[in-house]
Design a protein around this nucleic acid. Structure first.
Lengths: 144, 144
DNA sequence: TCAAAACCCCAGCAGAGAACCGGAGTATAC
DNA sequence: GTATACTCCGGTTCTCTGCTGGGGTTTTGA
């Protein structure tokens, strides 16, 4: 649930796709990577994962690329994170025994996790894009 | 901020110390490890860290052991986690560049993190102990 | 006194995952 | 039918976690 490099790359790519969503043209991996300076072969893997989860569509062949599968305000950050992290059903290696004390501890972390999921579900790709734009405005104001 | 094995061990050990806090007698590493089946050499390291952070005290020599440094209701889970995780000032390796998009993303994760910290700060060692006891009561009820 | 009981420091190791790179395909538009 | 783009598969390096071992040093209590 931490912000890994992997998740950040995926979100940056999706933001690029979001900002081009209105045009309807596909965006190529190279273009995304050039704008956000992401290693291209790495993003390729991430986009493949996103495609298999149905968050993006790909168009093969010349002048192909990637497209958002649905509108930017219908994709939450939780969708992205659970897709990339693979919602792996507690596949931690080498856990302590399942005693009464351990279950009480895990209850607390369940509470933490649910809180995090709520926050992530509140934000969509469109929100992020809007926030970026207002932030840019603020930066320009400071510049003047 | 995830629940690692390390943090779970530390909390289990602290819970053992909490339940013996009233007696005033120190608890030995071996006893803790025997009750919670924790690798003893590993817990030794964790307790050393907890001691350096002032969460536990140690008493050397024969019949020595570890004691909670203050009352169980004055130690929050946040204290424990930040001590063990070492609040390491974003020492992630290989981060993406610090663009406008990246900072918007990091803002969201800051929100997530603050939520998690609030939850952890709400719970003390005494809370966990109480929850364990009521849970035990429920188990007994089911048994009957 | 002195040896056992307990803590303390340092070092290394296996396994898993993250981040990344490269090669060889395969589908599609032009 | 070829260039363009995606797609599958595997390997490599690096870091972190969980764990183990070898030495100490301090202190108690018989």
């Amino acid at each position: 649930m931490d912000l890994s490099c992997k998740i950040e790359y995926a979100l940056l790519a999706l933001l690029e796709l979001s900002s081009c969503y209105a045009s309807g043209d596909p965006l190529q991996i190279r273009q995304i990577c050039a704008r956000q300076s992401i290693p291209d072969r790495y993003l390729e893997q991430l986009l493949a994962t996103l495609r298999r989860s149905g968050l993006v569509k790909s168009q093969r062949g010349a002048r192909g690329g990637y497209l958002l599968a649905r509108e930017p305000w219908l994709i939450t950050l939780y969708d992205v994170v659970s897709c990339i992290e693979g919602f792996d059903t507690q596949s931690e290696g080498a856990r302590p025994l399942d005693t009464l004390e351990a279950s009480v501890i895990q209850d607390v972390w369940g509470e933490v996790r649910r809180g995090a999921e709520q926050v992530l579900q509140k934000h969509t790709l469109k929100d992020l894009l809007d926030q970026r734009n207002t932030k840019q405005q603020v930066d320009i104001m400071y510049y003047i």
